[in-house]
Amino acid sequence: RALPCPAHVVFRYQAGREDELTITEGEWLEVIEEGDADEWVKARNQHGEVGFVPERYLNFPD
């Protein structure tokens, strides 16, 4: 997929490290980079905060 792209959060995730982003179910993010580890992506939330989130917690519109 082309980046950046929108993504809808389907599961809540609490950041466990400083470089991760806490996300809430129902929130929209902008995915800006593929992650440095499998199944992680770097995203920006509506407040401009950036961090890594688990890709499987997101839904990408067609």
Rank of each mutant, 00 (worst) to 15 (best):
E34K: 14
Y13W: 09
R44G: 01
T22K: 02
G48E: 09
V10P: 00
A43R: 01
A37K: 15
A7Q: 01
W28Q: 13
V41P: 00
F60C: 07
A15K: 10
N59K: 13
E27T: 04
Y57W: 06
D62V: 11
R12D: 12
E34I: 09
D19Y: 12
F60W: 11
P54K: 11
E39L: 09
P54M: 13
P6I: 14
E55N: 11
G35H: 05
E39I: 10
R44W: 00
L21M: 08
F11Y: 14
E18G: 11
E20Y: 04
G35I: 07
L29P: 02
P61K: 13
P4R: 04
T22A: 08
G26N: 08
G48N: 09
R44Q: 07
V53A: 03
K42M: 08
H47T: 09
Y13R: 07
D38H: 13
R56A: 14
R12F: 12
V9H: 01
E27C: 02
G16I: 10
P4F: 05
A37F: 12
E18Q: 13
G26Q: 06
V41A: 04
E20D: 06
H8D: 06
A15P: 05
R1K: 06
H8F: 03
I23T: 07
D36P: 15
A43L: 01
L29I: 13
N45A: 03
A7L: 01
F60M: 07
T22E: 04
P4Q: 04
R56H: 10
L29D: 03
E34C: 13
E27Y: 01
N59G: 10
I32C: 04
D62T: 13
G26V: 00
E20K: 01
Y13I: 02
G35C: 08
Y57N: 15
N45V: 00
D38Y: 10
V53T: 01
G16L: 12
D36M: 14
P4V: 06
L3Y: 15
A43I: 06
N45L: 02
Q46G: 11
G35E: 05
A2D: 15
L3H: 08
E25F: 05
A15C: 04
L3N: 10
N59L: 09
P6G: 08
Y57T: 14
N45E: 00
P54W: 10
V53N: 01
P54L: 12
R1Y: 10
L21N: 00
L29V: 15
V31N: 00
E30N: 08
R1A: 05
H8L: 08
R17D: 09
E55F: 09
L29R: 02
E33H: 08
E33K: 06
E34W: 11
E55H: 09
R17Q: 10
D36T: 12
D36F: 13
G26S: 04
T24H: 14
E27Q: 06
E25P: 11
V31T: 02
D62I: 05
E34V: 13
W40L: 09
R12P: 10
R1Q: 06
G48S: 09
A43S: 03
I32W: 07
G48L: 05
E30H: 08
P61Y: 06
G16H: 12
W28F: 15
V9S: 02
E30G: 01
E49H: 12
H8V: 06
H8N: 05
E30A: 05
E18P: 11
W28K: 13
L3T: 08
G26K: 05
P54N: 15
N59F: 10
P61M: 11
R12T: 13
W40R: 15
D62C: 15
N59V: 11
D38S: 13
H8Y: 05
V31C: 08
E30K: 06
D36C: 08
A7M: 00
Q46K: 14
E30Q: 12
V10K: 10
A15D: 03
E49F: 10
V10D: 10
G16A: 13
N45Q: 01
E20I: 02
V53G: 03
E34Q: 12
V10I: 12
G51P: 00
F52I: 09
V50C: 08
T22I: 01
E20R: 06
F52G: 04
L29T: 02
V10C: 12
G51E: 01
H47G: 14
E20W: 00
V53W: 00
G51T: 02
T24S: 11
A37E: 15
A15R: 08
E27I: 04
E25V: 09
A15Y: 01
R1E: 05
F60I: 09
A43N: 02
P54C: 13
G35A: 11
Q46N: 12
G51C: 00
V41S: 02
P6N: 03
R56Q: 13
T22Q: 03
D62G: 11
C5L: 04
L3E: 04
F60H: 06
E55R: 14
E30D: 08
I23S: 02
T24V: 12
D62E: 15
L3F: 14
P54Y: 09
I32S: 01
Y57M: 12
E33N: 08
P61W: 09
R56L: 10
R1P: 03
E49V: 09
G51R: 01
G35M: 08
V41R: 04
Q46T: 12
V53K: 00
V10G: 08
E49D: 10
L58P: 00
G16M: 13
W28T: 11
N59M: 10
R12E: 15
